[in-house]
Design a protein around this nucleic acid. Structure first.
Lengths: 127, 127, 127, 127
DNA sequence: GTGGTCTAGACCACC
DNA sequence: GTGGTCTAGACCACG
């Protein structure tokens, strides 16, 4: 099963689907031009109202992560479409977090070493 | 005026108030045991129903940022109450952000220099 | 009727509801993932304003006894969520009560026999 | 200072005073016919409105823990006045707690040994 | 139909 | 004056 839903999560279901698919796309699990499950299949697989899937796909298309071909299905967009926006946004959020940590008394060295730790850990996954 | 509300923001009003006050407390603008505006005053100031303010204050108290004395008002809690929790939470979110940036192809050097930039900028404020 | 309210009780209505539902959940009358009455139905059944029920449900969710799915209803959380906390809390209160009884001159034997009596009585219920 | 107030405590101040004084009396720190501080002195000592102290003393008198002699002050009542009531009440609460622990899966043995532990610990204090 | 938020207005307890 | 609770009634988002 490609994704799963957490009913304990307070966010609306369609948002969860969007987030999960975004992650799969950003992290390269779903490659460019890969076909993603049809609205109908996804709805059956998750035991969810098709309208909910439909809404998730619509927003993903609007944000440039997927594109729709009538009669054929939904496909992952080329990275150029969204990568830059996502990067700017994530960088801004990163800066905000750093600001918050400063006010909580965290030193620059501590942050630097945290980054290196995370990189090392993430690197392991690709071995 | 201590805080202001963005009616364009999709989040509920009481959440906006919570977040704004949290920030003021975490960043030290509101010191320990400072009195914050009464439910009624804040309601008038923001042209908002007192119940909405009330709810925001209740959640802030539950989270340990303020404490309430019936018949007297609401006051900022001593830092010990929340600092540790907030730190653990913020550090976790920091790591998550780093992970995301890695997947977006950002190098460690770029992050390191971003941190130094932010620190420099925040340092200026205190001069 | 699942629960009833005592208007002579000085405690706020929403607290009474919380306590009653907690009991039903802790004692297993309401099993995991059971659906509890909707905010509106409960409000009608008890002739109480929906907002009051809403507040009770919110606090129960925050405490981990129930979980909410927008557009679907409220459901009993799996026990793992709260059992441990509740146990620690109840044990502490038990010790406090024992301390109080000691100062009132109650002997250990008297307490021991009380425990056995209660156990016998509770055991009868399950026959 | 005989007692102190916790402004972080949500209960009204007069209730805190009642509880603290009750404890001192039940545990024998304040002996029968001891004089307790005057409303006025207590109010100054705690930096509190005399009305609040007055209310606490009134309720303590009504419950039989102290008695008032106009013009002379307030004094601790003989134990016979309240001991029996308090005992019945505490025993009931003890049974309730035992019931709760049973439903949480605590065994009789565990409760018995807890009692012995508490007794041992309390006994130490009087050495 | 379900929960989530907000307003308006009221009454109470506490200090 | 201050917070705490409750009602009545409304509108929105979600599925």
């Amino acid at each position: 099963m490609l994704i799963n839903i957490d009913y304990q999560d307070k966010r609306p279901i369609y948002e969860q689907i969007i987030e999960k698919l975004q992650n799969l796309i950003v992290k390269g699990v779903l490659a460019e031009n890969d076909k993603i499950p049809s609205v109908r299949n996804m709805a059956i697989e998750l035991s969810i109202n098709p309208n909910t899937i439909q809404r998730a796909y619509q927003e993903l298309e609007r944000a440039g992560y997927i594109y729709t071909v009538k009669g054929r299905g939904n496909f992952v967009s080329p990275k150029d479409g969204w990568k830059k926006d996502k990067l700017v946004e994530a960088m801004q959020e990163f800066d905000d977090k750093v600001t918050e940590l400063i006010h909580l008394g965290v030193s620059a060295d501590e942050m630097h070493s945290h980054i290196d730790d995370v990189i090392k850990k993430e690197g392991m996954k690709n071995d």
